[in-house]
Write a protein that binds this DNA or RNA. Structure first.
Length: 267
DNA sequence: GCGACAG
DNA sequence: ATCTTGTCGC
């Protein structure tokens, strides 16, 4: 992005010790806004495959991000590649990628300190101005309500949504098996979450399901990152998912992360 | 000791 | 995340 992050002081620093990381996450959560606070038109979050795409509206720029990892000669993952794809009105308008050294191992709950640096480096290369971020990982569904979507959203002060493929913490309010396409089940805070029990953290969202009773697709776990409420976060995930389980911007970032990694390995 | 968790 | 074969269904 052209402008520097509004809160560089809150950036994920992999040099911090564990206690300091957790402390920073509490500060991130305090700074985060878990209600709708954005100016773009949510109704024009259409994609090209949606027949209802309004040609006259000016659609927001949605940026999806996902990471892949590079291995050194010893066989260890030593670098992260962050792939970022900007989509507007269902069209890809820009793709950028950045590679940074990994400083921290993967620790559940501290993902942003491992991958955040690469993401911020990639976003720095982006020339378009994002209206909304979609990340592969949790937002408010997190022990300290500060998953990677919340962390990066707050640092950049850009509305963001977390899209995770599995549940980190929290409790579904109802059975999440056999949900119909387009339906959702609330995920609320349990004892493991630093929030009053019962707090609505996000939703299990069934963006896609097979017709035949033989094959089955698990729901996504969608939660507010920053400046988005839980209902809208789920609405956004559903609106941006077309033929696949993942919302288009993250699905495209996912495949670009694989593609860019292959290209990077060549050279 | 038990529980155990995004990517 | 990443590594793979096999299998289903369009």
């Amino acid at each position: 992005m052209c402008a520097p992050p509004p809160r560089p002081d809150l950036a994920p620093d992999p040099e911090l010790d564990r206690a300091a990381m957790e402390s920073l996450q509490r500060e991130i959560a305090d700074t985060a806004v878990f209600t709708d606070e954005f100016t773009f038109d949510c109704e024009s979050l259409t994609n090209p495959l949606a027949a209802s795409a309004a040609a006259d509206a000016d659609p927001p720029t949605v940026v999806g991000a996902d990471q892949s990892f590079l291995t050194n000669d010893a066989g260890d993952q030593d670098r992260a590649l962050s792939a970022v794809v900007a989509v507007r009105g269902g069209e890809v308008i820009e793709r950028v990628a950045a590679v940074t050294d990994l400083e921290t191992p993967y620790i559940p709950g501290l993902l942003s300190f491992r991958e955040g640096g690469a993401i911020l480096a990639a976003l720095d290369e982006l020339s378009v101005e994002p209206d909304l971020f979609l990340f592969d990982g949790s937002g408010r569904i997190h022990f300290r309500q500060a998953g990677i979507a919340t962390h990066i959203g707050v640092v950049c002060d850009v509305p963001s949504v977390g899209v995770a493929k599995s549940l980190l913490c929290g409790t579904p309010r109802e059975e999440t098996a056999d949900l119909q396409t387009g339906t959702r089940v609330g995920i609320e805070a349990n004892a493991k979450v630093d929030a009053p029990e019962g707090t609505l953290l996000g939703y299990a969202v069934q963006t896609r399901q097979y017709d035949s009773p033989n094959r089955y697709i698990n729901p996504l776990y969608v939660s507010p990152g920053h400046r988005i409420g839980p209902e809208t976060a789920a609405d956004i995930a559903l609106a941006l998912a077309s033929s696949y389980k993942l919302p288009e911007p993250v699905r495209l970032a996912d495949s670009y992360a694989t593609e860019a990694k292959r290209d990077y390995v060549d050279s």
